[in-house]
Amino acid sequence: MTRLIERYLTPLLLSALLLVASLSLGFGSTPVAVLEGLGGWLQGEPSEAALIIGEIRLPRTLLALIVGAALGLSGAALQGLLRNPLAEPGLVGASQGAALGAATVFYFGVFASLGTLATAVAGLIGAGAALLFMLLLAGSGRPALVIMAGLAISTVAGAALAVVLNFAPNPYAMQELVFWLMGSVSNRGLDSLIVLLPAFIIGSALILSQRRLLAALSLGELVAESMGQSVKKGSRIIVLGTACLVGSAVSVAGAIGFVGLLVPHMLRPFVGHRPERLLIPAALLGAILVCLADIAVRGMPLGRELKLGVLTSLIGAPFFVWLVWRERKRWL
């Protein structure tokens, strides 16, 4: 069974992705004919269906897919790079760094000349800086150190975020920022793709260019280096790629936790545990899961909205507890 899934994993995930995407386009409070609406929107018809599909559901679906793919891929890349099954954008400080960067832009108007790109650029810088500091602090890929260093950097970024909130000029800033941090893909226009898509493509390309290094790192830095891999340079490229993915995803959709942790674990048995084979399936499954979670969020009764990031955390956090439990059993 595992063998069979292993062989057809990517096509399987691709078809599931298409299915979930069309489900997402068709799902909502108003029943709409998806294809008709899509066609109408493409031809610029001012019909209700065209408006709902083109202006609301399409951006939302695309964002959920790309953000999910970015998180799944960066989780797989980080776990491979650090040789640590507990690495995740949120646990190594990248998400908090990105949130800090983006929040700084929201409230102090830095990078104002960049316009709509400002939050994404700041998110990217924040994620990159956080990852860099984490790696410097940890000094190696040793699992316990990476988690501790990630915790330390997250705490620092969290404290700085509190300072930003504290001195925010706008009294409603706090509430707005807290909601944004909870993570959501609703009410964002197609123009946020202008930021997200290039960052996603560049980040993915950077990470995928280092597949061989990720494979070699399975046996440690020394062995990888001895087989002719440039560990230092390659690691920097992977960190930069992850920063691109996480920075842009967080700046557009806020913090959507645990996707990067969960997805690689679900897939590992189906790729023979090979870190380099995990990357593309992790992107696909990340996209599927975030889009499904967003459909679930939309399906909840009107009134109090459950934020997407809250839902993924509710599912992901117990999983994290289980992972720690399993690790514990290995050592006791």
Binding site: L219, G220, L222, S226, M227, G272, H273
Partner: peptide, 24 residues
């Protein structure tokens, strides 16, 4: 070179680990 302390971070098969030796 075969360094002294080696371990595999992931539960790879023996064949896949030996195949990594072809990387150069």
């Amino acid at each position: 070179i075969q360094p002294q302390a080696v371990s595999s971070a992931w539960s790879l098969t023996v064949h896949d680990i030996v195949a990594l030796g072809r990387m150069p």
